[in-house]
Design a protein around this nucleic acid. Sequence first.
DNA 1: CCATCTTTGTGCACGCGTTCACAAAGACAT
DNA 2: ATGTCTTTGTGAACGCGTGCACAAAGATGG
Lengths: 254, 254
Amino acid sequence: MATGRTHRPATRSRGIPEATVARLPLYLRALTALSERSVPTVSSEELAAAAGVNSAKLRKDFSYLGSYGTRGVGYDVEYLVYQISRELGLTQDWPVVIVGIGNLGAALANYGGFASRGFRVAALIDADPAMAGKPVAGIPVQHTDELEKIIKDNGVSIGVIATPAGAAQQVCDRLVAAGVTSILNFAPTVLSVPDGVDVRKVDLSIELQILAFHEQRKAGEETAAGDGARPAATPREESADQGPDGDVPAVMPA
Amino acid sequence: MATGRTHRPATRSRGIPEATVARLPLYLRALTALSERSVPTVSSEELAAAAGVNSAKLRKDFSYLGSYGTRGVGYDVEYLVYQISRELGLTQDWPVVIVGIGNLGAALANYGGFASRGFRVAALIDADPAMAGKPVAGIPVQHTDELEKIIKDNGVSIGVIATPAGAAQQVCDRLVAAGVTSILNFAPTVLSVPDGVDVRKVDLSIELQILAFHEQRKAGEETAAGDGARPAATPREESADQGPDGDVPAVMPA
DNA sequence: CCATCTTTGTGCACGCGTTCACAAAGACAT
DNA sequence: ATGTCTTTGTGAACGCGTGCACAAAGATGG
C-alpha cells in the first residue's frame, strides 16, 4: 500500500484520510443543526458553507464514505447524519473518565457537548482526598486509588487528562495499564504511550502562542506601510528590556 | 466575506511554514524546562525527543529561523529560548480578554499557562449582569456593555471566546469591530470573520469524536495482541456491508 | 596543523491533502 | 421520450510537509 492505492472498491474502503476524519465532526454538527430545523436535503455548497470548508473538499471527504448524495439534488440530511455518526462510532455510547478535577476538569465535566454526542462521563477522578465524594456536575469525585477499578468496571477506553503537567505522565501510564487506549490530554506535557494508544492533545497556551505569532507579523507589516524595500532578514529588535519578569538572554550570536 | 482566509504566502520574506510555527511552542516548552535545569546545550536529537518529534523535522524547523546551532555541539539552550520567544512574539506582553465566564471561561482565567508565557488577562467579560463585579481568578468580571471600551483602553488584539455557541458569532463581531484581530474560539461554532482576522478553534467534543473513530476502528480489528482488560462492553456494531441499494436504518440505536 | 569525530543544515524524493474542472447521473419540464 | 439543468463524484495536477541521507562545519585530540 505504499505507492498506489490498492484501489479497493470505493464503498467501505478502510483508508479514510486523517484530515477527513477530523472534519467529519464538523459536518455532523452542521447537519445536526439542519436536522433540527427539519431541512430535508442540503447541497454540498450549502453544507460546506455551514461547516466553513470548501465544497470540493466536502464532496471528496464524503466520497471516502460512499456515494450518499443524489446528483442534481444534494444529500439527505437525516441519512447523512446517520452515516457520519456510524462512521465516527457515535452510534454507541462511550464511557469517559476525567482525571484531574481542577478548574478545567470541572469545566469539562459540565460541558454539554459530551453527552449530546455519544459520550458519557463515567467518573471524575482526582488525587486530592478532600475532593472525594464532592459532587461536580452532579457526579461525585472519586479518589485516584479507585482509578483502575473504575476503568475496568465501566469498560472505559477513553480517558481525559486534566491534571497539572507534573502528574500527567503518571496518570497516563495508569490509564493505559488499566485498559484505556485513547487519551485526550489537556496537560501541557508530551505524553509517551505504547503503540496502539491514541493521544490527542489540547494545549491552550500553544494556541495563544500561534495567534501571537500571526499577530506580531500583522503588526510588523502594518508599521511598514508604504515601505519600498524593507530588508526582510532583519527582524526588529525593539522593545528594550521588558519591565517585569525579564528573561533577557545574556548570550549573543557570534 | 469569505469565511476562510486565503493566507497569502505573499512574499518570500519570512515564510515560516504553518506547521513549523505550530511546533515552535512545543520546542519552547521543552527548552524552558531544560533552562530551568541549567542545561547549557542540547542536541537536536535530545530536544526532539523531549518535544516528541523527529530530529530531522526539528532541525528543518530551526533552519527556517536561522542557523542557531553549532555543528558538533548542538544548540545553546538560553539563546534558543530567546530566539523562539522573539519569533513567536512572546518578548512582548499580549493583553487578552476572555468573553463568557462560565465554567470554561473561569478555568481559562485561572489557567497558569497564560501569564507565564507573555499573555496577560486584561479583562473578563460576561453577559450576565449578576456576574458583574464578581471576582474570578482575582479579576472582577465586567459586563458585555463594556466590551468595546475595554478592548480599546487596553489595546487588546487577542480575544478568547468561551460563550455558548449561540452568542459566539455576535461576540466575535463585536470583538472584531472593536479592533481584535486574533480570536481563540472555544464555542462549538464556525465563526466568520473578515480577512485579516485569525481564528483558531478548540473544540472539545470534536477531539473526542476523532478519538472515538480510532477507538471504533481498533475495536473492529480487535484480535490478538490485546493486553488484558478488554472492556465487557465492546460493542462493535459494525453493520454488515449493505449494498448500495437504498434503505438502512434511519435511527441510531441508543 | 592535520586527522577524526560529532552534529548541524539541507537537497531531494515521496506521500498526503487540497483544489480544479468536468463527465456522469439523476431530477424535472415539455 | 427527450432535452435541459443541477449537482455529485472523481481523475489529475499541484503544493506542502516529512523523512532520508549526506556533505559541510566546527570541536577535539594528537
